[in-house]
Amino acid sequence: MSTLHTVSKAPSFRLLETCLSIIQAGDAVLFIEDGVYHCQQSTELLRNSEVKFYCLREDLIARGLIDRKLDTIETVNTQGFVDLCVQHDGIVNWF
């Protein structure tokens, strides 16, 4: 069983810390809406090798982050978002 976690608030809301504290190997984190501000700054939290990180392209473009994104986070478009939902057994939203 794997879970897709979506994070939709900026780092200042500290949702990622809580999210990662209950995450399991093989889970994925997708940053959407203001969550994509996580992709602009390298932090210890993002160096978790057991978790795959993604971010939504449309939200990066809107916020001026498309050229500021960390290379370690993979970009997906809306179709990729749907694919991630289908690939995982469950979804947990952090907002």
């Binding site: 900026a10 473009i61 809107a62």
Partner: peptide, 19 residues
């Protein structure tokens, strides 16, 4: 202040989210 500074980032284009 705070996350408000994100409002000022260059190269934003909110047409991608219909805003």
């Amino acid at each position: 202040m705070g996350d408000g500074v994100y409002q000022l980032l260059g190269n934003q284009n909110a047409t991608s989210i219909q805003s």
